[in-house]
Write a protein that binds this DNA or RNA. Structure first.
Length: 293
DNA sequence: CGCATCCCCTGCCTGC
DNA sequence: TGCAGGCAGGGGATGC
């Protein structure tokens, strides 16, 4: 699943191809992904012009010229493939090409430039909806989203305030999109390791009795911003089956310190620990019991 | 309200 | 080789 850095990478890849282009024709090849598509989805999009490409948390926002927004979420396996004159071009890191199973091409956008943008999603946890721009803020999908971790709001004070009083494990609270929106399993594990904080400690332990940030909260606020910024700069992380001869691909996976590194030595200087895997809320957590407290 | 559990879906990898 | 089970970057629905 794409997390914030992967979605941002996809946004940057799609922008030069889609911005200013008309959606000449849209092919919708099945009735639903995670949810049913909106009524007459493909027909409604036809002829409209892309006025902007944005991102909120893990959502891609395609601004249309008539004030509506095409909101897209990639779920766990959603990806885009750009093709021009029959040849594939990458929209960023989060996709594959050579190995792509075309049975899972669910939506094809035919652009006025002649290019096509194809949405492929094996597991179909992704979805697309149309929302008037003026209602974006109150739409159920967006209304309850927390702060953008790379925006100006996330600092130690705010982090402590968000975590204060919570009994949930710190990892679960960081993955809660209503608090901070955009973090997922990989970057939470990575940020916690950088901040030397255990994923199992109570989220509330990042705030003092008076609600002030602890030293750990200060380290974590910095670590979150740092790891996300580095991942965006690297074009996100490319996992598993990527195979693509032309174009860019993300390489942040080479920068993982703990994610998917069970049994590896802890990379913290002078730490003699080993990376452990445990399951929290049904998801794998990777961390070092020795230096993360 | 906060928190935990289960579920959606397909494919790949492991171990028996 | 086949097959069962576990696992995968997400988050919604439900129940306590």
């Amino acid at each position: 699943m794409p997390e914030l850095p992967e979605v941002e990478t996809v946004r940057r890849g799609l922008e030069p191809v889609m911005l200013g282009a008309a959606l000449v024709k849209v092919e919708q090849r099945r009735a639903d992904l995670r949810f049913p598509f909106p009524e007459r989805f493909a027909e409604r999009l036809a002829g409209r012009v892309v006025a902007g490409l944005g991102r909120r948390a893990k959502y891609l926002l395609v601004d249309l010229d008539d004030g509506e927004v095409l909101v897209m979420h990639l779920g766990m396996s959603g990806r885009f493939l750009i093709e021009m004159n029959g040849s594939g071009v990458t929209p960023g890191s989060y996709h594959q090409d050579a190995g792509q199973d075309r049975r899972h091409d669910h939506v094809v956008f035919h652009l006025s430039s002649g290019a096509t943008v194809t949405y492929n999603d094996t597991r179909r946890f992704g979805f697309m909806v149309l929302v008037p721009r003026t209602e974006l803020g109150v739409h159920p999908l967006m209304a309850k989203l927390g702060i953008e971790p790379l925006g100006n709001e996330l600092d130690a004070d705010r982090l402590a305030q968000l975590m204060a009083g919570r009994a949930a494990p710190l990892k679960a609270a960081l993955m809660d999109q209503r608090l901070i929106a955009g973090l997922g399993n990989i970057y939470v594990c990575e940020a916690l390791h950088r901040a030397r904080l255990s994923p199992t400690r109570r989220a509330g332990s990042l705030a003092t009795a008076t609600g002030r940030p602890t030293e750990g909260a200060r380290r974590l606020a910095i670590a979150i911003r740092e790891v996300l910024a580095e991942a965006v700069a690297a074009g996100g992380s490319t996992l598993r089956d990527y195979a693509q001869p032309n174009g860019s691909l993300g390489y942040f996976q080479h920068g993982f310190r703990v994610y998917d590194r069970e049994h590896a030595p802890c990379p913290t200087p002078n730490c003699r620990g080993t990376i452990t895997r445990l399951v929290q809320a049904g998801r794998s957590t990777f961390y070092c019991r020795s230096c993360q407290r």
